[in-house]
């Protein structure tokens, strides 16, 4: 509890428990690596079920995801983890993830800020 207090009070908005940042960061990096190397099916497997279903509304997920032309992720700049939600800011994109029973999955990718409204995302659950 003392750690959480110090973290929240002294840290910034992205403070969200550094030890927990690893898994969502790793999933995000695998997602963009798979896309960059033409393994869209593998990238689809890293999407949250609802996001994958939405992408695959008109054609199979791998083809639809490859066709979206998501920006290259690039280097990870910041990871924020709060509860079961995470945001990974990269040089070329911002990604939102949710922690499910079987691990972190991407809920939204290809996101552009649109303050004060939510991010406008190409892929969204």
């Amino acid at each position: 509890m003392a750690c959480l207090v110090a973290c929240v009070v002294l840290g910034g908005a992205g403070c969200g428990v550094a030890a927990e940042a690893g898994p969502p960061r790793a999933v995000t990096e695998r997602f963009f690596a798979a896309l960059a190397e033409g393994r869209a099916g593998e990238a689809c497997a890293l999407l949250a079920r609802q996001a994958a279903e939405k992408v695959a509304e008109e054609e199979p997920c791998d083809r639809a995801l490859a066709g979206l032309g998501l920006p290259a992720g690039g280097a990870v700049r910041e990871v924020a983890v709060w509860g079961d939600e995470a945001q990974v800011r990269m040089a070329g994109d911002t990604v939102f993830l949710h922690r499910y029973a079987d691990g972190w999955r991407i809920r939204a990718a290809g996101c552009r800020p649109d303050p004060p409204r939510p991010y406008d995302c190409e892929v969204e659950a």
């Binding site: 929240v8 908005a13 992205g14 709060w82 945001q87 800020p113």
Partner: peptide, 18 residues
């Protein structure tokens, strides 16, 4: 702050500081 940030992230919004 923690609960609000989890809610904001679930709504695809940036988290806030304390």
């Amino acid at each position: 702050t923690a609960a609000y940030n989890a809610e904001r992230l679930s709504r695809l919004q940036d988290p806030v500081s304390w």
